[in-house]
């Protein structure tokens, strides 16, 4: 839960979200063998789960401190549905960045779009993202947006407090939980543990119906089309395949001493022991 801050202005928070195929229906996801792209037609999109954590954190800050929450996504036109859901959750305004030129974007090309939109929206204090998306799992877009905006980023945050003119964040790393502090503006990416996202209430759904989603294309963003979509993506996908994981079991025979010797020998052969 965000703590009360003593700040003169109300916070401007932008949450970047991504529509991903509904994880509950992933058994219906099929890979097109020719294009190597996912055929998503049988699986409806939903807001990426960790992005819901980001929205929840923004809502908690807004409820405690006041301010405004804006939600942004770069996605095909039907992503307006996910933006409506974000508005129903309490976000104040929504932007859909959609253009045929954005298609096939990798993380960097996506980040360029998002950063351009955030700059155009105006003053910001905080940019929130999920730590990673359930479909891509790269964890790259958030930090790339921060680099392009030239603001600090704190990733895999599991606890966030507003303190004065900045934030104090507990970040999860492989070896330890580390506490960082940053001044505004900053970009934060959240892990699942940070909170329990709420469901949109019926009153929120009714309210969202009356808010129009703002749609921006490449021209609106003033962005060079060579920098976005497939053309602007340095990542080139060569192949997509399902890795085969082979397992084998072997039962060793002998006395305890013999077994120990055999086991050590095998582990050294497999280079699992020096």
């Amino acid at each position: 839960m965000a703590q009360k801050k003593s700040k003169l202005h109300e916070l401007e928070i932008i949450v970047c979200i991504k529509p991903v195929p509904d994880p509950r229906k992933w058994d219906k996801l099929k890979l097109d063998p020719e294009t190597m792209l996912l055929n998503r037609s049988q699986v409806p999109p939903v807001i990426n789960a960790l992005d819901l954590n980001a929205i929840e954190q923004a809502m908690q800050i807004k409820e405690t401190n006041g301010g405004k929450v804006t939600v942004v996504t770069m996605a095909p036109p039907d992503a307006a549905d996910q933006l409506q859901e974000a508005l129903a959750l309490g976000c104040d305004q929504a932007y859909l960045l959609s253009d045929i030129a954005f298609a096939g974007a990798d993380t960097l090309a996506t980040a360029r779009c998002l950063a351009a939109a955030i700059k155009k929206i105006g003053r910001i204090d905080l940019v929130f993202c999920g730590a990673y998306s359930l479909d891509g799992s790269t964890s790259q877009v958030g930090p790339q947006v921060a680099e392009l905006l030239e603001i600090p980023d704190l990733t895999h945050v599991v606890k966030l407090q507003i303190e004065g003119e900045g934030v104090k964040a507990e970040c999860k790393t492989e070896s330890a939980d580390v506490i960082f502090e940053s001044q505004f503006p900053a970009l934060i990416t959240f892990d699942r543990e940070v909170n329990q996202p709420r469901l949109p209430g019926m009153v929120g759904i009714r309210r969202a119906k009356d808010i129009s989603v703002v749609k921006w294309n490449a021209a609106d963003l003033g962005i060079n089309t060579d920098q976005v979509g497939l053309k602007g993506s340095p990542t080139q996908m060569l192949n997509v395949f399902t890795p085969t994981i082979g397992r084998k079991g072997e039962i060793l025979q002998g006395s305890a001493l013999e077994l120990t010797s055999q086991l050590l020998s095998k582990l050294r052969t497999e280079k699992l022991l020096q």
């Binding site: 549905d81 409506q84 859901e85 469901l199 949109p200 019926m202 759904i205 009714r206």
Partner: peptide, 9 residues
Amino acid sequence: KEVALVKRT
């Protein structure tokens, strides 16, 4: 759309 969201929620 808003009714579909009600249903999902």
